[in-house]
Every structure is written in C-alpha cells, then in structure tokens.
Design a protein around this nucleic acid. Structure first.
Length: 878
RNA sequence: GGGCUCGUGGUCUAGUGGUUAUGACGCUUCCCUUACAAGGAAGAGAUCGGUGGUUCGACUCCGCCCGAGCCCA
C-alpha cells in the first residue's frame, strides 16, 4: 500500500534489480511471424570509460518505443552491443597492461584487449541497468569477439564474390602520427599558424617572344618541403596577367625538375600570386589535378612523414626538418622572395590532430558510386522519425565523391582474410568455413597459386576500418552466417528487417549509411523499417557540452540527484530529432509529476478498498461514465502519439489530463461520493479502473513509479510493462453535459476565489441554465451548494450586441476582396439581420458565416457567472 | 563557401493560410480544502528575429537580411 512520501531511490533500485533477475524483458523468440517480433538495432557504444548523455538520451528514446511496443503485445528484441573493436579499446588495453600492441601477435593482443574490456563492459551494463532501459541482457555481443570477426570477414568475402570490392593503388588520406590510412570523414579542419613562402620559379627557355630569357614568376606555398614532389604549375584561365605562361615549362628551384604550366579553373586566384604548384600530393586538389591532367607521380614523403630519395639530399629528413632546410637553401639561392606568418585551415586527423598527408597505397575499396540511386531508394523505403532527417542522408549520398576505403594500416583490428600470390599478386581468400582467420598467423587455403602455380604467398597486413564491422550490427543481431548447406542465412530471420534503428543525427552520414549499404548488399533487403534520429544533449544554455568549455554535466551526477523516472520524463520533452537542452527545471517537473502520481494513488487506494471487481458500465453514474469516456479518448490520443513517436506531446497531454481532468475535476468529486455514500461502488470501481489505465499509459515513460504502484496497489504479479496496453472501453456517456458540468464547477471555483471564499465555503443556492443533467449532485457536493436548481428558461438577461464575428474560412473564399468593405461596415454598425441572414455592405451572409457577439448583463437577483455555454446564478443569503 | 535545421511572453515550448496564439517554469494576488502548500484558484506578461512580397487574410507560403546550431567543403 503506498504511504508516506515517494521514495524513488529505494523503489527504482529495487525494480531495476528485479527486472534483470526476472528477465522481464526477455525476448521470447517463439513466434516465427516477423509481425509479432519488434526488433531494435542500436549502434553499440564504444566501451571505454564512461557513459555520456548521447547514450542515455538515445537509449531512453528507444526504451519508450520498446516499452510501448511490448505493451502492445509485441515480442520485443532489445539487445545490447559493446563496441570494443577500435583504437579506443586498443589504447585502453595498452595503458592498463602497460604493453605495446606491436609486441604481440595480433590474435594474442586481441585476447588481452577482450579481457581488459570486460570490466568496462560490466560497468556499462550496470549503468544501463540503473537507467531502467528495458534491454534483454541475455542478448549481448562484443564487436571484438571471434563471432563478430567471423561475420566481418564473411561480409568481406561475400562482397568480393559479388564484385563489389576492388583493390587499387590510389591516393589515400594518411595520418603520419598514427601511421594509418583514414577515411575522409575522420578528418576535420583546423586553423593553424603557418608561413607563406613566395618562391621564384624559372621559366625554361622558350620560343615564345612574350617570355624573356631567365624570366621568373612567383608561387606562394605553405609547404616548401613539397618542392621535390612538384609535378605541374597551374594558372587560372581567367588570369589574364599570367596567361602567357600557359603551355610553357617551369624549372623547380633546388631540384631542377621541369614541369608543365597548365590552365585550370580550380586555381584560387585570390591566394598568393594566383599561380600555384601541384605536388604529389599536397591536398585534395592536387589529387584531382593528378587525375584530370594525367600528371606524373613524385612521391617525396613516405608513411612516416620522412622524405624519400626523390628529395635528393633532403632524403631521410622529417617533413619539418626538410622544410627548414629547404627554406634556408632557397634563401641562399636567392629564390626565396618572402616569408610571412599566416593562419590557414589544414586537414587534420580528428583523433590526434596531426595534419594529414596524401599517399599512394594499395587499398581495398567497396564500390558505392555506381549504386547511389539504389542506396537513395533504400533510404526512401525507411520511415524516418523525424521525416526531415532523410534530407541529410540524401545530401550525403548526392555529395559522395569517393568509394569507401576499408583498409586500415594498423597492427590491431579485424584482419582481411586475404593472401596474395608472391609472384603474380593473385588474390587468395580464406575458406568461409574456417573464418575467422588471421593471415599473419594462418596459412592460406591453397598450396599453390591457382593462377600461376607459384607456391609462396604474402599475407595481407591491413585490417578493416571499424565502420566495416560497425555497419554489420543488424546481421550480428539476427545471427547471420554461412554454411555449406544453406549458404548465407539468419539464425533468427524474423528479426530482419529491424523495426527500429536509432541514430544520433551527427552520424547519419556514415554509420547509418554504411549499415544500409552493407546489409542491403548482403541480403537484398533494406535493413530497417524505421529510423529514429535523436538530437544532441546540450547544456542549460543550449550550447554543446564539451570538456574544454567545462559545461559537461554527467548522467551519473544527474541520476544521483534526481529520480531516473524524472530524467526519463525530461528526455521525453523534446521532439524526436531536436536537440535536448539539459534542464534542472525539466527534471524538477518530472519529480513533481511523480509526487502527484504517488499522492493521487494514495488517495485512490484509500477510496477503493471495497471497490467491486466487476460493475455493469450501464449502471455507472453519469460522472463515472463521463470520466471513462474521456479516458477512452485520451487513450486513443496517447496511442496515436506513441505510434508516431511524438513522446513530448504524449507526455504533456497525458500529464495534463491526469492532473487536471482526473485529479482536479473527477477525483475531487469522487472522493466525497465515496466518503459520503458508504463506499459508492460506482465511483470506487471507476477509480480502480481508471487508475490501472493511467499506470499503463504512464509506464513507458515513468517506468519505475508505475511498476511500484501497480504491484503495491493492484496486487499484480506480472509487471505493468507486460500487462498490455489499454484499449478503449467504449463507455457511453454524455460528454457534453459532463464538460458543461465541469465548466460550472470551474465558474463556481473562480467565483469563490474572486470573493475570497475558501473552496469548501457553503453556497446557499445556485441556479444553472444549461445541460448538466446527471451531474447536479456532483456539482453540489464538490462546490458545497445547499440547493442547486436547473432553470428551464434562460434567465432574464439583457443582451447588448457588441459586434459581429465572421467565420473567415467561409467568408473569405466567398467574398474575397469585399471582406475589407464588410469589416468596415460592421465596425460602423452599418448592418442588419434579416431572417437569420446578415445584410451588410450590399451583400447577404448565410447564418453559418457569422455569429452575433453579445455581452450579457444579468438584471435579476443573485450574481451571474458564465460557464462556457451555461449560465450560473449564485444566490447568497447574507 | 555549399547544404540542412532553428529563431513564438523573462525562460523553455505547442501550433498552423482564417475567432481572442498552446502549455510549462518563473512572477503577482488569494485560499492550510483530512492525497499533495513541492497543492489549488485567479491574474499580469508576446506587434510570433528583421524586412519586402504572394493573398480578401501570413506566426504559417515565397524572396532577401540578421542571429544560433549541425553536417560538408
């Protein structure tokens, strides 16, 4: 029995433990029908350190969907993945064990990483459970596990066999610090101080009379160390001043290679001298030029950022050392015209902040560009919550310029299951049944090259980009595998396609997109029925939380200060897809609702001790039927909103209905009826029924408090979360009369408030004109009216016409530009009504087009109140 | 530089071509009413970022400008 004050700390922890112990949220898996299963594929969070708001918010929104669907009778599959296949966990293991991954065999190091991650996984599990997320803890996976490695390698082989993958020597974005290739999306811009160097280039002797012997021109560069890599010089076609150079040949100072001077629109005329050198490779444009003009390759910088033999005497220097040396020598040679400090934007690796290089490497690619239209169509087939987020997916695909590079030159990660013939470079794949393999430790499946018969093989050193694995979570969750008999198939085919994919809006472009591509190619089916995009959690001032700003509020901190249910209430407060600002006010509002629910429940409990379990709905009083009918409407509304994932509206509407209609209007009356009418079976029954229904409706959001009350008050064994969503009862009621009655009560409350009377002050006599039939006693009892009469006749009032109110939605289309004339005439009072029609400004308006506004003045005894359509007259004897 | 999103009382927020623009928090006044004063009742407070246009009518649609954010260059 609920008593005293609500104690969320005890209650929440109790239920969190019991839900896990009882496996309340276990996926039954007995149904084969995909319509009965409701499957969720959450992007697994990186397991290193602590849970942040992005996780909490995203998972809480998913939990609303999961709980709602579970209540609706769905068999919900809500798994959890730990992403520990990546640099973060690698670093974690190295730190924790004080080792270097290079010192271990890849497989051995991964085993060690798995062990280190276990404790972090346990911590994550505990935190997720302490947030009351209804995850099935029997359904978990680690992205570093051998099972997931097997799926990743199967995925590679499947795509290779479908001809969707290729290996190419191609420019790769390279981080010299991490010594790995990275993808375009792993780079970011950074403003850095640098120097602009004006360098004189000599024009090679020419037949052209416009070019003087020994003529020079100036190029400006921030990277003089790339001079040995220079393969061309570019001039903008609109650059009249320098146009005479086009077609000539330039000689590079210090290095003396001769390069063509070419016109191209990609030159930025505003920067430096407007003449620019093109190197292998300084930036993205250099690559474009290399491809467009079929230029030479002069690779002057290697993987570690060291200069190569191409740089002659500078070979072996780091690029910084080489820069200083070259600048010095240029100066000596008289070719350095100027050197000045600037800040400019450079491309850096987002993880370490090092400026990236462009290298030419052998890389594996997944082909994307040829199927852009198909992937766009796949995106269209999913339901987007909110719909507008589809645009981001669309823009991303339309802007794609590169296929997807999946090679990473790292020593740890999931290896490519590939060997190459040492002689002819023929690709040898691992056998599918033997996966996972590591070519560095395992032998290839053939003794001799099927192509040339050579018997030596080179293992592929590279590992997969982590996205190549992260994009497989639907396949991991549904148990995708291969065997001789069935080929590729699912262990749990009913889960695929997944009903819900949650995703932060910042990573739609790669995580979601890549997942759609991979799964679509493997199964021929779009992996998700719907995508739900969550916004970012901002601080109280709507600014992004960041460690450098010091405005980070941790979830732990909040949950230790506020009930989890209050945090869930707050999380339901933004439209899906919008950012969610951290808000103590929001949390306190949640706490208030919990308190209200608790206190109201205490009262309901005290009133329903003798409530009958059954009661013929036709025999309920008007008021009780009215409440249940209103509740029916609310159920329909809330159901619809939950289906559309408009949690904020569902929350606010339900809160308002519970607080005002149920507590303020109904409960105030019902408590007196039960107390005064010896238990009042009709009211007690209604309270009991309504209260159960409220708990169900609130349960997806206020998961803990509703569970506590459900068990405590209604003695149920089963969890409220599996008790079934309420269906409308279909109770017949005079809803209009009920609403009029509530308006009358409201008018009387206002009267008492205005007259500074207490709410339980007695009123001698009240006359009501208006249909409140069946509610008379309810009004009298709650407002303490001694004698309540309903008037057959409208009380004598003087009506003063104050104006005419037009229905513009009818008048506008009908009369168009005459509307302003009509309005002017009405304002003048220049109109008359004839047989219900309004004659004004030379036109006649039908009765439905207007309403005569009247102010009513009561001239009889007592005081007149207006309550919607009803009129209330209060008589006081004093 | 390009794309997308968003600017509504002091703060947060609903809303959409057509009455008096929703609600919450805060504020003011009143009320201790045996579930809850962390409650209840009432009230004040907004020319809907700015500016042009379309329209009989714009918070809503369109253009431009200003401001904030995200993604991509």
């Amino acid at each position: 029995m609920p008593s005293g004050e609500y104690d969320p700390e005890t209650v929440e922890q109790k239920w969190q433990e019991r839900w896990v112990d009882d496996e309340t949220y276990a996926y039954e898996g007995s149904a084969d029908d995909p319509d009965t299963a409701f499957s969720i594929d959450s992007p697994p969070p990186t397991v290193s350190g602590s849970l942040h708001w992005g996780h909490v918010y995203g998972f809480t929104l998913q939990d609303f969907v999961a709980r709602f669907n579970r209540m609706r009778g769905k068999d919900v599959y809500f798994p959890f993945g730990y992403d520990d296949n990546g640099i973060a966990s690698e670093r974690l293991a190295e730190e924790e064990l004080d080792v270097r991954h290079q010192d271990y065999e890849r497989r051995e190091f991964q085993r060690m990483t798995r062990e280190v991650c276990q404790q972090y996984e346990a911590e994550f599990t505990e935190k997720m459970q302490s947030l009351g997320i209804s995850i099935d803890w029997e359904q978990t996976y680690q992205t570093i596990s051998p099972e997931v490695q097997r799926i990743s390698q199967l995925s590679f082989i499947d795509l290779y066999e479908q001809g969707r993958e290729y290996r190419q020597r191609a420019p790769a974005i390279w981080c010299p610090e991490c010594e790995t290739a990275i993808s375009q999306v792993e780079t970011e811009d950074d403003e850095q101080p640098s120097h602009f160097h004006d360098i004189a280039f000599e024009v090679v002797e020419s037949e052209n009379p416009d070019v003087a012997d020994g003529e020079t021109f100036t190029i400006s560069t921030t990277r003089p160390e790339l001079l040995p890599a220079c393969v061309a010089v570019f001039v903008h076609p609109d650059d009249d001043e320098n146009q005479y150079l086009v077609g000539e040949t330039a000689r590079i100072p210090l290095f003396d290679q001769e390069v063509p001077i070419i016109a191209d629109e990609r030159v930025d005329m505003e920067t430096g001298s407007g003449i620019v050198m093109c190197c292998t490779f300084g930036d993205q444009t250099d690559i474009e030029w290399y491809q467009a003009h079929d230029l030479d390759l002069r690779i002057a910088i290697d993987e570690s950022g060291t200069l190569t033999d191409v740089a002659g005497e500078y070979a072996g220097l780091s690029s910084e050392e080489a820069r200083e040396a070259i600048v010095e020598d240029l100066d000596e040679a008289g070719a350095l015209l100027d050197r000045r400090s600037i800040t400019h934007t450079v491309n850096v690796h987002e993880r370490c902040g090092t400026s990236v290089e462009f290298l030419v490497k052998d890389q594996w690619y997944i082909e994307l560009l040829d199927k852009r239209e198909e992937y766009l169509q796949a995106g269209r087939e999913m339901d987007w919550y909110p719909e507008k987020m589809f645009t981001r997916y669309k823009n991303w695909i339309e802007g794609l310029q590169w296929d997807w590079a999946i090679s990473r030159q790292r020593s740890s990660g999931i290896p490519f299951p590939v060997w190459y013939c040492a002689d002819c470079e023929h690709v040898v794949l691992a056998e599918k049944e033997s996966l996972p393999v590591d070519p560095l430790s395992d032998e290839p499946p053939v003794d001799a090259c099927p192509e040339c018969g050579h018997d030596e093989f080179e293992p592929e050193n590279d590992v997969f980009d982590t996205w190549a694995t992260s994009s497989l979570t639907p396949l991991i969750n549904a148990g995708w595998d291969w065997d001789e008999e069935d080929g590729y198939s699912f262990e749990n085919p009913e889960l695929y396609q997944f009903d819900l994919r949650p995703q932060g809006h910042d990573i739609i472009s790669f995580w979601l997109f890549h997942t759609v591509v991979k799964c679509y190619e493997h199964t021929g089916e779009v992996p998700f029925d719907s995508v739900m995009i969550n916004g970012m959690v901002l601080d109280e001032n709507r600014e992004k939380m960041s460690k450098s700003k010091g405005n980070v509020v941790s979830p732990d901190e909040v949950v230790s200060k506020f009930p989890v249910d209050a945090a869930r209430y707050w999380a339901a407060g933004s439209a899906v897809g919008d950012d969610l600002p951290y808000s103590e006010k929001g949390l306190r509002a949640g706490e208030k609702l919990l308190r209200k629910l608790w206190n109201a429940s205490k009262l309901v409990e005290s009133l329903t001790e003798d409530a009958p379990a059954e009661f013929d709905h036709d025999d309920l009083t008007q008021l009780d039927r009215w409440l249940l009918a209103e509740l029916d409407q609310e159920i329909e509304r809330v159901t619809d909103l939950f289906e559309r994932r408009e949690f904020s509206k569902a929350r606010d509407g339900l809160r308002g209905f519970f607080w005002h209609t149920f507590c303020d209007d109904y409960l105030e009356i019902a408590k007196q009826r039960v107390r005064e009418n010896d238990g009042d079976a009709s009211a007690a029954y209604t309270l009991d029924v309504a209260h159960r229904r409220f708990l169900k409706l609130f349960s997806p959001i206020l998961a803990h408090a509703t569970e506590e009350l459900w068990h405590d008050m209604h003695g149920e064994r089963e969890s409220v979360h599996t008790s079934g969503w309420p269906e409308p009862l279909g109770v017949e009621a005079d809803v209009d009369a009920g609403e009029t009655a509530m308006a009358v009560v409201g008018a009387l409350r206002k009267y008492k408030s205005d007259e500074q009377l207490s709410m339980n002050a007695e009123l001698d006599r009240v006359d009501v004109w208006g249909d409140v039939s069946g509610f008379e006693d309810d009004i009298s009892s709650v407002m303490h009216v001694r004698e309540l009469d309903t008037l057959a006749e409208r009380p004598a009032i003087e009506s003063v016409v104050t104006g005419v109110d037009l229905d513009y939605s009818l008048v506008g289309p009908e009369f168009g530009s005459q509307v302003s004339e009509i309005e002017a005439a009405l304002a003048e009072g220049d109109y008359e009504t004839v047989d219900g029609e309004l004659h004004v400004a030379g036109v006649e308006l039908e009765p439905e087009m207007f309403e005569i506004e009247e102010e009513r003045q009561y001239v009889g005894e007592g005081e007149m109140l207006e309550a919607d359509d009803a009129i209330v007259i209060v008589h006081r004897d004093d």
